[in-house]
């Protein structure tokens, strides 16, 4: 059976009592692609991943991983996937080598192939100097790499990563993603959750989850293009004063400090000139004012905003109908 898609998720739903943690989520991951599941804490990302790994039983909907149904054939799924959980889950009192050895044995690797695979993984994760270090003495970034190595000890064609880089410094995060890229190049399909929006840029496709629902599903560029409003960045003096007057201009939807800069969302591009004139008339020196490409964070924030507005107006109509 040839399978084009590594993961097919169809209206997957999970309820805990009255609470719906995952609400009719559907997406597919083509083989060899990296799929990023984004969203704030509690959006349902982890629950989705756990269902795909066979840790939780879906309440409704279907999910196939590498052609196996997660509901009917969870044990077959388990032989084919690697899973890195959110919580750091290696044995703290074992060395790097012993952790790898343990998982290698569980996956039934024996003798020389096992030793070779362990050496290979230690090399890949750059753990050569930490081979005999007790895991609890490793720094966060090294542990993350070790956890990844343990998750792929059996060469799984599918990898589930649940917030793999939580609490790791930016450089190590970058290096970690390089490892993921290498794996994807070798044909491994990856599903990663994260709430670092910048990490989503590494993914081929992104699903955005908010309040148990998938609110967007596209590649990063399409998502960025989906923002209708224009974002401009201003580098100027007396920012407090500038911010005050910006909010008074009609056509400015939002203005906020962004580090030492101002980020302003405007309705139409023409508003940009209005801003320029207004600020200059008030004696604010503008060093730079330009249109910028929205980051995925901006996309996410704007999407949630429109979602909320839709919710509020829906409720409003409902209320009115009652009267």
């Amino acid at each position: 059976m040839s399978v084009e898609n590594a993961v097919i998720v169809d209206k997957l739903t999970k309820t805990f009592g009255d609470f719906t943690a995952v609400d009719h989520v559907s997406f597919t991951i083509p083989k060899g692609e990296i799929f990023g599941l984004l969203g704030p804490n509690g959006a349902g990302k982890t629950t989705t991943i756990r269902m795909l790994c066979g840790l939780l039983i879906p309440s409704d909907g279907d999910a196939k991983v590498l052609g196996y149904d997660v509901l009917i054939q969870p044990e077959e799924v388990k032989t084919k996937i690697g899973y890195m959980s959110q919580k750091f889950s290696l044995y703290n009192d074992l060395t790097s080598y012993e952790n790898l050895d343990f998982y290698a044995r569980i996956y039934g690797l024996t003798g020389n192939p096992r030793e070779n695979r362990i050496d290979e993984l230690i090399e890949m994760a750059g753990l050569r100097n930490h081979r005999s270090t007790i895991t609890s003495n490793l720094s966060g970034a090294w542990r993350q790499r070790l956890a990844l190595a343990c998750a792929i000890v059996h060469n799984p064609p599918m990898l589930f990563l649940d917030e793999p880089t939580a609490g790791v410094d930016p450089i190590s995060r970058r290096e970690f993603w390089d490892l993921i890229y290498d794996l994807a190049r070798q044909g491994v399909s990856v599903l990663a959750t994260t709430h670092y929006m910048d990490e989503a840029e590494y993914c081929n496709n992104i699903g955005m989850m908010y309040q148990s629902k998938l609110i967007a599903l596209a590649d990063p560029d399409t998502l960025r293009g989906s923002i209708k409003d224009t974002l401009i960045e201003i580098d100027c003096d007396s920012q407090g004063k500038a911010l005050q007057s910006l909010k008074e201009i009609s056509g400015v939807l939002e203005a906020a400090m962004h580090g030492a800069l101002l980020h302003v969302t405007i309705e139409k591009k023409a508003v940009k000139n209005k801003i320029k004139e207004r600020l200059q008339s008030e004696g604010v020196a503008i060093n730079r004012i330009e249109e910028i490409l929205p980051s995925l964070e901006d996309v996410f924030v704007s999407m949630i905003k429109s979602k909320r507005q839709a919710l509020v107006s829906a409720e409003f109509i409902e209320e009115r109908e009652k009267i």
């Binding site: 388990k78 996937i81 959980s85 919580k87």
Partner: peptide, 13 residues
């Protein structure tokens, strides 16, 4: 409690 069980469960053990 340590969360290692979750990791064990996803193995075919």
């Amino acid at each position: 409690e340590q969360g290692t069980l979750e990791q064990l469960i996803v193995t075919p053990i």
